[in-house]
Every structure is written in C-alpha cells, then in structure tokens.
C-alpha cells in the first residue's frame, strides 16, 4: 500500500473530544511538494494536523514518515523525526524576545548550524530582523505569523504542517506569506501540508489538493484541476456559473455526495 510519499496517512480516525472528527482520511505528501487540504469549519482539518504531529492519538489508521510509523508517538519525538506543526492562531511565546522564540524552534537540535539558520530565517523574513529584541507579543498579527513559520523552519523539518496561516490577515499579507511558503518549499526543500479555508490562494501555490468534509476526503486532484472544477469554484472559490440572478432557479448540489 506504500506509495513512496514522504508522508503517508492511511484511514486515519480521530476524535476531537466526543466528536469523531476524522472518519478515515488517507492522503499523501510526496517529497518536495506542497499539498493543501481545503475544507470549511469543522471539517476536521486541524484534527488531522494534530493527529499527524502527535498531539492527538489516532483511534485507528496509520501515519508514516518516509515509511516509518509515527502515529501515537510523542510530539517531541515527532519533531526530531522532521515533522513540525505550525498551529493556527499564531501561537508565539508572548513575553520572550523574537530571537528567543526563533531559537526555541531549534530546541530539539544540538548541531552548530543553528546560528546560520537564524540568519537564513531572517533572510526570508527581514521584518523580524528589526524586532529581534522585542517581546513577540508586541508584534503585529502578520509579523507573528512570519515568526511562527520562521520558528518552525529553525527545527530544520522535512515537512511542515501549516494550519491556516492566512487566518485573520489582510489579503496582501496572505499572498506575501503564502509566496514565502512556496519559496521555502522550492529553495529549502521543505515539503508542506497546508490547511486552508482560503481555497483560491492555497490552490495557487499548491501542487495537489484534498477537500475534506465532515472528516472525509470527498475530492482530490492536482491543484490546477481543482481550480477548474465547477464544484470547487462554486463552493470554495465563491465563483458562480455564468448568468446572474434570475436565470438560475436551482441550487447547485455538490456532485460528490
């Protein structure tokens, strides 16, 4: 059943409290690619990432990184294997300086390239350079989002799990941040699993996409094909089939049900 992908998720079932949030999800993230998972609130996107990064234990199913099973392993061990999770909501350490926040990203590492990587991160996010000594809690929302992505990069991950980096940011900032994500993927070779509600912009930078609904994958395909799909356009991109009000007298149904 192995597909040779870097991250393989198979038939994952997971509970969020009493709610069964994942009802058998399978997906692949090939090495070096950007894969996006789209879905509305409550589709199970965050639960999926939490289960992969080891914060939640799956009820059933498997997660494998480069062929090695990691489901149910403690999160600190999973980070050392090369999976780092950037949680939604910009979880910085508010009273610590930006520099300390970044160095904490490398907590599991003990090599001496950490300072070089700090320079690398600041190269990608030059705004942070001016703010190194400032407490992270005083940064703006966009800067905090850059900080958490930079902090995750400090762990030198093989794959980054990004949970809604666009949440609550202006459209311009969202494009800038997603463009940086794509650059990190190309230039640093970090594979990305990007969870988004902002389908249009996520599909713009992704290679492949999955649509999650109520804990199931209902549709998947290469990003450019998903962008063209009538269903995706209708329900996630906010587009409307030709013709305006009055001509259309039916409510379009999703064809994947």
């Amino acid at each position: 059943m192995s597909s040779g992908a870097l991250l393989e998720v198979r038939n994952l079932e997971s509970y969020y409290g009493p709610v069964m949030a994942l009802r058998g999800v399978s997906l692949d993230v090939p090495e070096g690619s950007v894969v996006t998972v789209l879905g509305a609130n409550g589709a199970g996107k965050t639960t999926l990432l939490r289960t992969i990064s080891g914060v939640l234990d799956p009820e059933k199913g498997s997660v494998a990184l480069a062929g090695e099973a990691i489901a149910g392993v403690d999160p600190d061990v999973i980070v050392t294997r090369g999976v780092v999770h950037v949680p939604e909501g910009r979880e910085v350490f508010p009273l610590l300086s930006v520099a300390s926040n970044l160095r904490l990203g490398a907590y599991t590492r003990s090599d001496d390239a950490i300072e070089d990587d700090l320079g690398l991160v600041l190269g990608y996010f030059p705004v942070l350079k001016e703010r190194l000594a400032q407490p992270a809690g005083t940064l703006s929302g966009g800067e905090q989002q850059m900080l958490v992505i930079g902090r995750a990069l400090m762990a030198r991950p093989r794959i980054m799990l990004l949970d809604e980096p666009s949440l609550g940011l202006s459209p311009r900032l969202v494009s800038a941040i997603l463009a940086t994500v794509r650059r990190l993927n190309r230039e640093q070779g970090v594979s990305m699993l990007l969870v988004e509600q902002n389908a249009r912009q996520a599909l713009d930078i992704a290679d492949y996409g999955y649509v999650l609904e109520l804990g199931r994958v209902v549709l998947d395909g290469p990003a450019d094909r998903l962008r063209q799909s009538a269903d995706i356009r209708e329900f996630y991109l906010g587009g409307q089939a030709a013709g305006g009000r009055g001509e259309r007298r039916w409510k379009r149904r999703k064809t994947w049900r």
């Binding site: 990064s53 914060v55 403690d74 999160p75 600190d76 061990v77 999973i78 980070v79 050392t80 780092v84 999770h85 950037v86 949680p87 979880e91 910085v92 350490f93 904490l104 990203g105 907590y107 599991t108 958490v148 902090r151 762990a155």
Partner: peptide, 9 residues
C-alpha cells in the same frame, strides 16, 4: 501548546 509543537518535553 506551542512548546509542545516545538518539541519541548
């Protein structure tokens, strides 16, 4: 939570 995600035990 963030400490967990950074691999801090």
């Amino acid at each position: 939570l963030a400490a967990y995600y950074m691999g801090i035990p």
